[in-house]
Design a protein around this nucleic acid. Structure first.
Lengths: 137, 137
DNA sequence: ATTAATGCAAAATCTTTGCACTTTC
DNA sequence: GAAAGTGCAAAGATTTTGCATTAAT
């Protein structure tokens, strides 16, 4: 994991074409410093609030979307009605615990996928997502 | 594809522990007669309305959920904020066209998946879903 | 100074629920 | 006639948007 120096966050945002506002710096630090994270907008908003960092919920939503468009985050779809974001943008797969709603990364090269058929005419494969659903045993 | 006889629908529902009401028969016919289908609750509601078959949207939602619990349908999660149902309950995978929102089945045995890692402690694999995202080429 | 971002409240989705009425068993 | 299902309108939950204010270039 690249432990990004504090000052680097500003450049990270600038390089992504995003103005380094206080709110975005706070979000970027929480998300991109340290290890891979899976979270909903609410999760992040609550976490920041807990630390006394106030960023409005709509700004959290708006910026998570901008971060995602800029390639800083990735969206993971595993449950209808909830959006998860993933700070790991390298292609990879997931375990999804249906009971708790927790996600766990599976490195892409751990799973062998072969013989993916040709897509329908006029379409190109943009990505392959594997979700391994798990339940309490 | 098993073309279920008209009368069979009643038994299908009964066998699933669901009272064969007019609304459920109408839904079951639309969904389970003929080939595999992918649809949202809104899709189905509009389709029925088009044919002059009135079933309230809440009843469509409620019954799609009951059908799913009963194993008559399956839920497919590919896009946050939208629930897709699939009348094909046999395990299989999907192409998802991000542009149009269309789903296409991929038979389970077409794709070879190997080396799925052990799930985290205390968890058991309940299913493996592969979504092949495709875009206009 | 210009342009973009924030925060709030309001609106837009999508889905579930409470309850009186109707249908099935 | 008891139990379950329906339909409506209302409530929930999640996400986006309009707009005045504030901050970044």
């Amino acid at each position: 994991m690249t432990q990004r120096p504090f000052e680097g966050m500003k450049n990270l945002l600038k390089d992504a074409g995003l103005r380094p506002t206080r709110q975005r710096l706070v979000m970027a630090r929480a998300l991109l410093e340290g290890g891979n994270r899976h979270f909903t907008p609410e999760d992040l908003h609550a976490e920041l609030a807990n630390e006394g960092l106030r960023v409005s919920l709509s700004t959290v939503y708006n910026n998570l979307n901008k971060f995602t468009s800029a390639g800083l985050l990735r969206e993971v779809v595993v449950e209808s009605g909830k959006t998860f974001f993933d700070s790991n943008t390298i292609p990879h797969h997931h375990f999804f615990d249906e009971g708790t709603g927790s996600l766990y990364d599976i490195p892409e090269d751990k799973i062998l996928i072969k013989n993916v058929p040709e897509p329908p005419k006029g379409l190109l494969i943009s990505g392959v997502d594997v979700v391994v659903r798990v339940v309490k045993s």
